[in-house]
Nucleic acid binder design. Structure first.
Lengths: 210, 210
DNA sequence: ACTCCTTGATTGAACGATCAATCTAACATT
DNA sequence: AATGTTAGATTGATCGTTCAATCAAGGAGT
């Protein structure tokens, strides 16, 4: 074929990622991956020693996809660092709406399905989460004194991920976006409270300086 | 046998619930359920038309277990309605710690694994969540004017579930409880902010009345 | 008390389908 | 020729499910 050498492996990874996202890990058969990727079993087992290592490969691949596929779009669309958080949440919301409140977060799904049984996969899921939260923490840092000086921004960045994953889970169960919107509304109320607290802190410092 | 008629069915439900929780739905084979419950396949298919209907049975059974197995313990241990929320979160934390950050919430796991494919199961998962959140909303209502009058308590009760599920997911991925504790700490900061706001609102009303 | 019939529960071997994985042979490029 | 890659039939195990047979228990009729 006229395809370059690494093309088959990339196609396997993309298809596997998509199918794991759509159906879950256990519900996705190797045969289905092969069929949809247009690849024979020999090729798959040439690149991956088994289904479990394919999962590992997918999670490693996902690590590199987060920034270009998700975060760059958010940063391009929204300049304000705090609003970027809600822009990110809205982007996941759009995805949910597009798929009829299905599928949700590909990493989150795998976290609950395979984390207990596959240590290597668990570690990579953790790194995907840490990667996600680290970018959000960058935005929180960029917010400077718009957040209170006492605010633990690493903690808060994890909270953002918590809200997103919990909100998605409930939206899937409900079959509609209301639990998602409710959670985001409450989280915005929290951020607003933090902003007001920071404003009081700033004016107190200003009064001190005067 | 000396066993009453419904004993076999109950044993199947309990074992299936436990195995779905430990391993997930797809990863649990009917054969394993049969073996661990000490039941033959014919008996299972006498009570349930298939694995999918067994899942439905498990979710219906879980509906009735929430209050006696989970919520009653919280209400007995903690009287203050707002603190009951954190007592509930701590109870799930204890469970996670006991199992080495594994398993997590049985309903949450099924939500992400089967909600898309089994409409009847999705609806029951939703009812389990709604049941959980409704009890929490009862506590929020009982908090009276310790929360701001503008506070949407139904929204907030969903937020509590969001925090728990998101926190559990990250704790499983990390293999430790820090993301869980971080999320709860942030949520406590939010509740504290709401309490302060309510206090300001009360004193304002008092000033009006004076 | 005795037999007959029904009912619901249980047994466990067996089924076809599908699972992940393996194998050898062939292909492409260098 | 050597190496890396692909083709695709094939393996044995396991999957969810079926089904004819068995068992225990309880009326109904005599």
């Amino acid at each position: 074929m006229g395809l370059e050498p690494q093309d088959t492996k990339a196609r396997i990874l993309e298809v596997a990622f998509r199918l794991f996202h759509e159906q879950g890990y256990h519900a996705t058969s190797v045969a289905t991956i092969l069929r949809e990727a247009g690849v024979n079993s020999g090729s798959l087992y040439h690149y991956f020693s088994g289904k479990e290592q394919l999962l590992v490969g997918v999670l490693e691949w996902a690590l590199g996809e987060l920034r270009p596929q998700v975060m760059d779009a958010v940063e391009a669309r929204t300049a304000d660092p705090l609003e970027r958080i809600f822009s990110l949440l809205e982007q996941y919301r759009d995805g949910m709406k597009l798929f009829g409140c299905r599928m949700g977060c590909p990493i989150g799904n795998l976290a609950l399905e395979v984390a207990d049984d596959h240590p290597e996969a668990r570690q990579l899921i953790h790194r995907n989460f840490a990667n996600w939260a680290a970018i959000v923490k960058g935005w929180l840092d960029a917010a400077g004194d718009r957040l209170p000086p006492t605010c633990n921004r690493e903690q808060l960045s994890r909270m953002v991920l918590t809200v997103m994953e919990g909100a998605i889970m409930q939206a899937r169960a409900a079959g509609n976006l209301q639990p998602f919107d409710d959670s985001v509304a409450q989280f915005r109320a929290y951020i607003d409270a933090l902003k007001r607290e920071a404003a009081r802190s700033r004016s107190a410092v200003a009064a001190m300086g005067a």
